[in-house]
Design a protein around this nucleic acid. Sequence first.
DNA 1: CGGCAGGTTGAGCGGATTCAAATACAGTGG
DNA 2: CCACTGTATTTGAATCCGCTCAACCTGCCG
Lengths: 252, 252
Amino acid sequence: MSNPWTMKMEMFTGFTDAEKRRLDELVAARRSTYRPRDDIIADGAHSADCHVVLSGLACRYKILRDGRRQIMAFLIPGDLCDAEIFVLKVMDHGVAAMTPTVAALVSGKEMKAMLRETSNLGEALWWGTMTDLGVLRERIIDHGRRNAKERIAHLLYEMLVRYRMVGMAADDTYDFPITQIDLADATGLTAVHANRTLQKLRAEGLIEAKGKTIKVLDPDGLKAVAQFNGDYLHLDRAHEHTDVGSRASDLV
Amino acid sequence: MSNPWTMKMEMFTGFTDAEKRRLDELVAARRSTYRPRDDIIADGAHSADCHVVLSGLACRYKILRDGRRQIMAFLIPGDLCDAEIFVLKVMDHGVAAMTPTVAALVSGKEMKAMLRETSNLGEALWWGTMTDLGVLRERIIDHGRRNAKERIAHLLYEMLVRYRMVGMAADDTYDFPITQIDLADATGLTAVHANRTLQKLRAEGLIEAKGKTIKVLDPDGLKAVAQFNGDYLHLDRAHEHTDVGSRASDLV
DNA sequence: CGGCAGGTTGAGCGGATTCAAATACAGTGG
DNA sequence: CCACTGTATTTGAATCCGCTCAACCTGCCG
């Protein structure tokens, strides 16, 4: 039984069975649970291990001196929290759990050893990092050139695609248990305005946001409002390797 | 005589003389000049070479269907334009020259060969990519949680630090020949508002922006206005390797 | 000298914020 | 089971930052 991290990386690269087994072992070896608001890795910290989200939801964030907070990315199962520990001294931002979250602790030493032995892992890490860059760039466009409605629509559609990638968005519905305050901090809005905007999206029949679940009623409509173009997720690179059946690019 | 790319990477890693010579050869082999507005590498393109800025100024950008443009990053001498070509099929954004710019074309094949032979280059590329990520995250904070004045101040201070890194900011003055339209597209403002904000910064005696040159009159003041904290540039990782004399962390 | 791109200024508008209060909701302890 | 408490969502009204539209100025180049 494979873990979400290996699954995600396999969208890009092809591992041998031996490699898969070894990755599974790495992930299974040590894990840790976090309560909402717990730091998985704190701003300014360094760690000998890197952290992979196995279940739950986490975010990258930074807090300014005056208390303003910005969420820069959401991490879902299969996402690597802190690739930087391999080359940088300390984290320049924090990663915190938003819901009860389980993360695997992967020893940096063993990762480095495995990186030396197989080029597949290195390539997969590069792919993950490059798509992270793409997502961040898209977020900059959100904030710089899209208004509140487009911005929230874009985020919700992107999360839909990402949850589809890990098989967690059946029926265009996914669990996204964040508060409107979190949503505001992620989109660069105030909670009040995020609320009003969300109401508009609901009123237009694009989404349903009951409790902690997002149901996308009209995917094409939402995509159009957001001016979403999924190229930056680089799913097209994927299907060359995957088995027959699901083409990754169908996810967008 | 070393090139700006190698110089920049040496802030992080230590190359042997042989490695340095080889990098110099790679950079010297083929180069290309671009006029303002020329694409160095276009959105959606793929290339067998990667591009390193040797002189001039370039930017990463993306244009929405309705014409809105967002500049996501500025590239100065020593910056790598398109590390993604090693793992991704196509670019998800464009890189264009803003001034007459010279870039080295480095063969992807030879880079990969060198990556296999020395771990130093790989580590340096990781460092560059990780700091790029840090810069992008900081830009998201700019757009999400900083107002126009803080945002422009932050960008100008960051560029000061980056130009210092490559020895191009003597006397707190650096060449930054962009139009106010470009500045607006980078900061997510309109040209009109960027203009007015720039005037305020001048009126407060923080900067001088005559012609194409930025002179920072009051670095500490500008830094304070921007709430700048340079940790995300990860210069502290650097001085372990560099020779005596200039400590990299003094640049911030 | 005309043309053009970039910079500057003014007036009015609107999207998003701020402040404040009301309502819904989940968890806790009596 | 309900009262109590704290947190999240919703609504209203006033305000402001940044946008839009438009005009004008400046410097540069053919």
